[in-house]
């Protein structure tokens, strides 16, 4: 954090806590900047809502990854596998519940979706737990091997998806009541985007509550700063880490379901496309920072959506430029995590 340490000579003066609001203003500034270029306010609202929806999905996927990195210095390049597995599990569940999906009733639709998400999250959570034990555990503290091993895990996982679900592209239909848009004035907002924003905000809020109001959350935040001291206080950080890894994987599974529904199609490589954005997000957010991850996700999604409208050919390249700009401003990301 950028809070200045109080001078040692005046221990009695109450230090001022400087809150760092600047990064929060960035998405606001970016969307304001985009307005004159987009021109039409209606289009701008549509794009901004799309960006928020996409940003929430990226956040849900990235939050677990950034915590895993912060806590244990493990960078999981195989995170994309959980996105794909989550999406495929949901596809299977929704296929079984096709009656609930096709009926034009929000209640039944959400029930089917809820069940699909539950299965996807339990499945990817368990998979994450196994992935941590088998793939990641033997290579703690060795970045090079971590990257290689988790990449290998990703290859194997993608191939297994081919074996189980087949290699062809699948259609992932939205439940009936979630199709179409809500019209407010002359702005049409797709229903699913609203749902995505709600889900993202709920995940973010839940994360903040857990991290700030529970002992587990305090341990995670403390562990991100200094895992060794957490152990010296008598807590088994390994258990904590496995738990965070599994929850992070489950969140990637949730994000995968949302992402597949958003795109309405699904292949085993679905994780690859969005993982590039996820990496950009956790770099510009500050590795290990949930708040930075949230703002970074919105920024990246805005950049992607505005440029997709204005200059469609350079959508991803514009995000590289965004990343470069932010790293030149703050080399450790928007909210650098205090490390020993």
């Amino acid at each position: 954090m950028t809070v200045a340490p109080a001078p040692a000579t005046t221990p009695e003066a109450l230090p001022a806590i400087k809150h760092d609001y600047l990064p929060i203003l960035l998405p606001v500034a970016l969307s304001a900047l985009a307005l004159p270029f987009v021109g039409n306010p209606t289009t701008w609202v549509t794009l901004t809502v799309a960006a928020l929806a996409m940003g929430m999905m990226i956040f849900v996927i990235a939050s677990g990854l950034t915590l895993v990195f912060g806590l244990m210095d493990v960078l999981n390049f195989g995170h994309g596998a959980f996105i794909a597995v989550g999406a495929y599990l949901a596809l299977s569940v929704l296929g079984l519940l096709s009656g609930w999906v096709q009926v034009d009733s929000l209640g039944w639709n959400l029930m089917a979706l809820g069940l699909a998400v539950t299965v996807a999250m339990i499945g990817t959570g368990l998979l994450g737990w196994a992935f941590e034990r088998v793939i990641v555990r033997p290579v703690y503290g060795q970045h090079l091997k971590q990257i290689l091993i988790t990449m290998g895990g990703l290859i194997v996982a993608e191939q297994l998806i081919h074996v189980i679900w087949g290699g062809d592209q699948k259609a992932m239909a939205l439940p009936t009541a979630l199709r179409g848009a809500v019209v407010i004035g002359d702005v049409a907002i797709e229903k699913f985007r609203i749902l995505a924003v709600v889900v993202g905000l709920v995940v973010f809020a839940a994360m903040l509550v857990v991290l700030n109001r529970t002992r587990i959350g305090l341990l995670i935040r403390a562990g991100v700063e200094n895992a060794e001291m957490v152990e010296a206080l008598g807590y088994r950080i390994r258990r904590l880490f496995v738990g965070v890894f599994a929850v992070g994987s489950a969140l990637a599974g949730l994000g995968g379901v949302m992402w597949a529904l958003y795109r309405e199609t699904l292949t085993a490589a679905i994780g690859g496309d969005i993982m590039v954005l996820v990496f950009i997000v956790i770099i510009i957010g500050g590795l290990g920072s949930v708040g930075g991850c949230f703002i970074g996700a919105i920024l990246v999604a805005m950049m992607a959506n505005y440029t997709a409208f204005l200059l469609p050919k350079v959508a991803l390249a514009s995000n590289i430029l965004l990343m470069v700009a932010i790293l030149m401003w703050r080399p450790q990301g928007l909210y650098p995590v205090a490390k020993r």
Partner: peptide, 22 residues
């Protein structure tokens, strides 16, 4: 280490290692 801590040993490292964000 956690078991040693639970056995009743507390440690104040040279770096102090207070959790700055907490």
């Amino acid at each position: 280490t956690p078991d040693i801590a639970q056995a009743g040993i507390a440690y104040v490292p040279e770096t102090m290692a207070v959790f700055a964000d907490l």
